[in-house]
């Protein structure tokens, strides 16, 4: 299968979505990611019983944190799909990319750019 999905997605492989901790999602955002997808198995299909359900709760937690600090909760999303379902993955990747484009670049990335520009100017001066 030669499926096309947006090239701006960086994939981090984990053995189970249950491995994804809250801090991982936050760190990705801190690093300037515009959005974070947690892709887990279909509900009921977790090899470790409930890894994907735990991941879901953590995604909700991060969404709540984002709302509280004034960022768009939609920048983080949980998707459930079968590991063999490549076309669905490509679809999700496109969907999330569209959503994030609508939201615009992450305010963190902007602020960081601004801050580094500032410091460069300061250095130059």
């Amino acid at each position: 299968m030669r499926l096309r999905y947006p090239t701006n997605i960086k994939i981090i492989k984990v053995p189970c979505s249950g491995r994804v901790a809250i801090i991982h999602m936050l760190k990705a955002l801190e690093e300037g990611a515009d959005g974070v997808i947690v892709a887990g198995c279909l509900e009921g299909d977790c090899h470790y019983q409930s890894g994907n359900l735990r991941a879901k709760k953590r995604v909700i937690y991060v969404q709540e944190v984002l709302e509280k600090i004034g960022m768009e909760a939609e920048r983080v999303a949980m998707y459930n799909l079968s590991a063999g379902d490549g076309p669905r993955f490509a679809e999700i990747a496109r969907e999330m990319t569209e959503k994030v484009k609508e939201l615009g670049p992450s305010p963190i990335k902007n602020a960081k750019k601004l801050a580094s520009k500032k410091s460069k100017v300061e250095v130059a001066a």
Partner: peptide, 13 residues
């Protein structure tokens, strides 16, 4: 870790 990260996000933003 979580609190510090969230706070950094907030103040950076």
């Amino acid at each position: 870790q979580v609190l510090a990260s969230a706070l950094r996000l907030y103040f950076t933003k």
